[in-house]
Design a binder for these strands. Sequence first.
DNA 1: GAAAGTACTTTCCTATAGGGAACTACCTTA
DNA 2: TAAGGTAGTTCCCTATAGGAAAGTACTTTC
Lengths: 123, 123
Amino acid sequence: MKKKSVINDTPVCQIRMQAISDTMSILSGKWKFHIIGTLIEGNKLGFMDLLREIDGIGTKMLSKELQDLEMNQLVNRKVMDTKPITVEYSITEYGATLAPVINEIAKWGIEYRKSIFEADGEQ
Amino acid sequence: MKKKSVINDTPVCQIRMQAISDTMSILSGKWKFHIIGTLIEGNKLGFMDLLREIDGIGTKMLSKELQDLEMNQLVNRKVMDTKPITVEYSITEYGATLAPVINEIAKWGIEYRKSIFEADGEQ
DNA sequence: GAAAGTACTTTCCTATAGGGAACTACCTTA
DNA sequence: TAAGGTAGTTCCCTATAGGAAAGTACTTTC
């Protein structure tokens, strides 16, 4: 008889694990946090604005990631009736609920850097 | 003259973005959150215990991810002087500070599932 | 009519992530 | 001496992520 899981085998744990996988699959990749963070700060931004704000991203990735985020209802895309057409990207009400998650992650990262600095005397 | 970033160009934003990248690179991959979550719940666990607890992981990934986490001081590895040698994995004090981050991520994922269920009548 | 700005899409390429299966090595029990 | 448990490592493979560069299409400005 094969031994079975004992810790993660409770319904509460299963739901938690599933929830973590869900969140991380929605926010996966190198750029989603940066895009969401920028849109939370910047309110309404055009494609080229985002391209300039997010250091290092290219048009292909920005376009693809924005589509992903739009599909998951975290970002609004609105085509404006201007002379050269412009597009307004903004965070949705639902996307804004990610702020506490992003804050915790940023907070932890800042503490992490501090602790490395103190321990190793580097950087 | 090329237009420059205005939102993300403040020192505070740069540090925040860097911190998010740091955290996500440490916790990147399919399994790190599961391993850390299990170790927080389970206290001290052997390699085979983790293999059984974490549904779907194989020996190769578990071994590699544990090495990553150990390198980043989030997990302790202690070889025990038992008859067949056993290894005790546990979360470090520092690794335990990830609990609030994991909690926020889990909380958001649970709300996300709820909202999809309400909106679409799907799972 | 050429340049430059809007917003993308497409193609091509490489690097990394991650899985399966087999293998190592050592010890205990039947 | 064969089976089964400990804890991994190694090899081979595929799929995905992500970057660079060029192309599309349309408009305004010089």
